[in-house]
Design a protein around this nucleic acid. Structure first.
Lengths: 218, 218
DNA sequence: TGCTACTGACTGACCGGTCAGTTATTTTCT
DNA sequence: AGAAAATAACTGACCGGTCAGTCAGTAGCA
């Protein structure tokens, strides 16, 4: 399931590959049945070793969860840089690029599974939520906010609140996935992130109203 | 806390008030520590009775969770009706009214706590997620979608996809709360739902761009 | 022989659910 | 009225099961 390069190692002795195998097993089980309802013995069995061996690589069950998040999180600092790099002179193009980055990232179920688990276990393991925040959101959110700020500075975007507008930009994607993953609620035309993004971009570009009249300051 | 009419009932004997007391205790504990990490004994202690007594009112721990959701859910069908009723000729006013309904509902932490718990336990207790879907989303989402559809039919809204646009409308509120509740990420200007809604309405009304140029059909 | 990788039986703690028994309240009887 | 019986509300020790984590021992390898 994990590595088809070794032909048939009846009793495998490859300490280096083990931690990743354990993490793979844990992720799929956590995603499927939740952290609390997954026993270390099940993780071990799925990974193809014994319970005791798991504890050679991870000091506790929670450490497995931590390792999982850490492994998922490390490439993201890179992505945040990519986010900055994709900024072009054309704010519209930048926005499109941003969405395509998000869509391709979150399209992979394995990537999506980690934040799902983190959100579920945030109450029980606040340190993990904090780590996820530190390693992901503290990189990605400021980068994205900065893009908006630049768009305003360059005169292409209207003078909206960058932080709040960021929520207006990514919010729809999150609910879309939330409704689908948790409640199995999918639009009639299917769960197409691309369609959602297309419709959402249209709204961001033009608003929802036909007539531009009506000044609406509070 | 519940009934100040009996002065000092050292050993209280009021079977009628009990279930609600148990649910109150359970909600605060589930919200705080999660379902799995809350024992029935703790719920009992918090509610001020013994473990055995809890089982006089609820056949199982899961039934407590069900009761919690059921109690929270029952007023919502009414709200969905209110949602239909608030539809006016002015689509802008309708949208504002919709948001103010959402903001006042979700502003109450006790109301918000229930869907939070449901989302967390959805994997473990899919029947409960299904019930929540049936009793809440299956009423609220179609009602809201219909409002959008009417706005399009009356020529006030641009011909967007109603189902996807609904996600563009409510999405920002959900992420806003998600970021705040789970990751403690709050905008510089504070966690003000009103400000977020104001900014979001502005975007929905006018889009984010200054220049209306650039036709962007897929 | 010595070392690394691994095993799985075992332990201690926790917890959902039960139930025999206790305490307060109400009803019935005198 | 008060005593006695019946009933409703409640208690908490206990049982069975699960599970995270341990450890004495085994298997392959140099």
């Amino acid at each position: 399931m994990t590595d088809p390069d070794s032909p048939e190692p009846k009793f495998r002795r490859r300490a280096e590959a083990r931690p990743d195998e354990v993490l793979d097993a844990a992720l799929s089980l956590f995603d499927e049945k939740g952290y609390a309802h997954t026993s270390v013995a099940q993780i071990a069995k799925t990974a193809g070793l014994s319970k005791g061996a798991v504890y050679l690589y991870f000091p506790s069950k929670q450490a497995i969860l931590e390792g999982l998040v850490r492994r998922a999180v490390s490439p993201i600092a890179t992505r945040a840089q990519a986010l900055v790099d994709l900024t072009s002179d054309d704010a519209r193009a930048t926005l499109r690029a941003l969405f395509s980055l998000i869509a391709t990232s979150l399209g992979d179920p394995k990537v999506l599974a980690v934040p799902k688990v983190v959100i579920r276990e945030a109450v029980v393991a606040p340190e993990i939520a904090a780590m996820y925040r530190r390693e992901v959101f503290d990189h990605v959110l400021p980068a994205a906010t900065e893009i908006i700020r630049q768009g305003i500075a360059s005169g292409q975007l209207r003078p909206v609140d960058p932080e709040l507008t960021l929520r207006s930009i990514i919010g729809p994607i999150v609910v879309h996935l939330l409704l689908a993953e948790i409640f199995d609620i999918v639009p009639e035309n299917g769960l197409s992130l691309d369609q959602l993004i297309e419709n959402h971009l249209d709204i961001l570009f033009h608003g929802v109203f036909l007539s531009p009249e009506g000044s609406t300051d509070a």
